[in-house]
Design a protein around this nucleic acid. Structure first.
Length: 273
DNA sequence: CACTAAACCTGGGAGC
DNA sequence: TGCTCCCAGGTTTAGT
């Protein structure tokens, strides 16, 4: 499930393949995957455009084109970009094929939750889904003071706050559980109940966990692959996610699995307080 | 305003 | 073997 480290890995592996290339042809196999303004067609929007930038914001991937327009991609659960040096037929779940000067970019998504949205020049700044996002957790603009202020007096669970993209962006269920374990904090604690010392542990844990995720090339739990089709390795370093009932790697006690604000959450009842 | 639930999808696994 | 049911999860939208 692409969270910040997975999207960042896709960005890094995709960039050398597509930057500077020109879009020659667009084939939309499943129209639901490609969102664009009425009266536009994918071909009219993209054909002849060069890819000039590739950026990430939270879990969004932004492909900048040479006329100022942008393709805003969100992979949700199973979406992915894969680059092929030579043209080839799509698989069962390939929804969009973008042919470049050299090679092809395939957008695939088994669950069909993800979207590629074409945003015309000048309209990116008004895009609600991007404007609502909180700061990047691994960047300088995410500091402890901001974090404390956002959680102050909050009665909802700290896990829910970590998943709230308007507070900080990029965390999903996997890295939220891992960060809480690293910080030694129970997922269902009211966010406003954390002491400053605990907030610092969590702030640090979020940043370290995400950085380790990126270093590992992301987490391949089911089907995530980078743009070259390679798996990540952070699944080998997971300490709680997907390990409900298994022994805690720190103390040996069986890990507990519960629902916190509707999301599966795994924690150690001895190591997290 | 704050929080919850449903909706969007498909495939894998469990249980019968 | 085959059927049914549940679960996984990010975000938006609708409802309490």
């Amino acid at each position: 499930m692409p969270e910040l480290p997975e999207v960042e890995t896709i960005r890094r592996t995709l960039a050398p393949h597509i930057l500077g290339q020109t879009i020659k042809k667009v084939r939309v196999v499943w129209p639901g995957a490609f969102v664009l303004p009425a009266k536009m067609t994918p071909a009219r929007a993209l054909r002849g455009r060069a890819v000039v930038s590739l950026n990430r914001r939270g879990k969004y991937l932004l492909l900048g084109l040479d006329d100022g327009s942008t393709i805003v991609a969100h992979f949700r659960m199973t979406g992915s970009f894969v680059f092929y040096p030579r043209p080839r037929a799509g698989s069962k779940h390939t929804h969009v094929i973008i042919s470049l000067t050299a090679g092809q970019l395939h957008y695939t998504d088994q669950r069909k939750f993800g979207r590629l949205q074409f945003v015309p020049a000048g309209e990116l700044a008004a895009l609600a889904c991007l404007n609502k996002l909180g700061p990047e957790p691994i960047a300088e603009d995410f500091d402890l003071e901001y974090f404390a202020k956002k959680l102050d007096n909050k009665k909802s669970a700290i896990k829910a706050a970590l998943l709230d993209q308007t507070i900080i962006c990029g965390l999903g269920n996997i890295y939220a559980d891992e960060a809480l374990f690293r910080a030694g904090i129970l997922p269902f604690r009211p966010a406003g109940s954390l002491k400053l010392s605990e907030l610092f542990l969590l702030y640090d844990a979020v940043r370290v966990t995400l950085r380790e995720g990126i270093e590992s090339g992301g987490t391949t739990f089911r089907d995530y692959k980078d743009a070259d089709g390679h798996s990540g390795s952070f699944q080998n370093r997971l300490r709680v996610y997907g390990r409900g009932g298994l022994p805690c790697l720190n103390c040996g006690r069986a890990l507990t699995k519960i629902k916190v604000s509707g999301r599966a959450s795994v924690y150690c009842a001895d190591c997290q307080h």
